[in-house]
Design a protein around this nucleic acid. Structure first.
Lengths: 203, 203
DNA sequence: TGTACATCAGTGAACGCGCGTTCACTGATGTAC
DNA sequence: TGTACATCAGTGAACGCGCGTTCACTGATGTAC
């Protein structure tokens, strides 16, 4: 992971906003939400501690921005896997779920933040949209599988939430280190095991 | 919720340890891990700010104790539901899952703490045991359903983890306010909907 | 093309606050004899 | 049964620290004319 540039020639940073997001994510994963502070993030970027206020207001503003950006990358992670999958609809849903796990495992702290609800409560429209988009990604494919819209049919909605709950719970248990079973396996074996688990739901 | 007694006649508290746990949980749910501090907990109990150190060392010690105690109550919540359920094994598993949801919904902050992994990493045996016991509760019933031990058969283990992931994910999405579908329903309707979801996994 | 000026992005000193930790203390309880 | 003493639980003052917030500032950029 490339370090955020500490030195610069100009008085202005150039792209401080992006740099703060990057550093913010690093701080988040190093210290957790508990130790998160704007000053620490500023320090990491090599900028005055009052500079972040110009872009995010306060710490919560930065966290919301992080979560929003996180949801976009989350969706991308699912799409990337899905696009590589065979045409068959179940395979595509399974592939999206793998993308879900990819993201959770590569950015566990951010994943937690996004689904925490504490820091980013309601009241942020951009965040809500990004979050909703990633839900719809899964809902659409399950609807296609069932050839009926989840929004119209409660049974299809139950399918969607069963898939979603399963992959979400699996991800959360995985990153909290509670999946002893899977710990010793190779990536391929892990995928095969998760396939067993997930296919029980969309079979 | 009864307030922790602020006044006392004696110099000694009587059962400060228990009072600190109770207040600690309240602080946790009010401020989240981010705002959690020993001084705040002491203040809530009405005791000197350095008193907690005698019982828990530091803030992390109190959090670990909270999580450990949480796992015990978590197990109890599942057992209580299960004991009221019909004999049929699927019904008992489903009932345990309802207990899982009960606990998560009544103590969301504690639930998060228990499954966070950050605060309570490894290295605490009592916590590990309590956590493991609640896992086995589910694993045993699923093993009974399949008439084979999950510890010996990977396919049974996949069943266990499918059930666990589903109920865990459902709980987590529920308390993070991302289950719009369920929001407007009555408790009975909610249970019926969750039954639809969960039975897909243990059918 | 050049100048003047407004706006924006980042600085750094200052402040007050809540925190954890330490420490000498004091009140209560239990135990030995 | 009474006394002496050790141990334990809780106190409160003191300290240093990192934090968020404020504010007057300065360097850079863009725009009007």
């Amino acid at each position: 992971m490339p370090a955020t540039p500490i030195k610069r020639d100009s008085y202005h940073h150039g792209d401080l906003r992006a740099a703060l997001l990057e550093a913010g994510e690093a701080v988040l994963s190093e210290t957790g939400v508990a130790g998160f502070s704007l000053r620490q993030v500023a320090r990491k970027v090599g900028v005055s501690h009052s500079a972040p206020a110009h872009h995010f207001g306060d710490a919560n503003g930065l966290l919301i921005a992080l979560a929003t950006d996180g949801f976009r990358r989350f969706l991308t992670a699912m799409q990337r896997r899905r696009d590589q999958a065979p045409e068959e609809i179940r395979e595509r849903i399974f592939a999206s779920a793998l993308g879900y796990l990819d993201f959770a495992q590569s950015s566990p702290a951010l994943f937690r933040l996004m689904f925490n609800g504490d820091v980013c409560g309601p009241a942020n429209q951009t965040l809500e949209q990004a979050s909703h988009a990633s839900f719809m990604h899964l809902a659409d494919d399950v609807s296609a599988l069932r050839q009926k819209s989840a929004l119209e049919d409660a049974s299809v909605m139950a399918d969607v939430l069963a898939s979603w709950s399963t992959v979400h719970g699996y991800a959360d248990l995985l990153i909290s280190g509670r999946m002893d079973t899977v710990q010793g396996l190779t990536p391929d074996e892990q995928e095969a095991f998760f396939r067993q688990v997930f296919m029980r739901v969309i079979a």
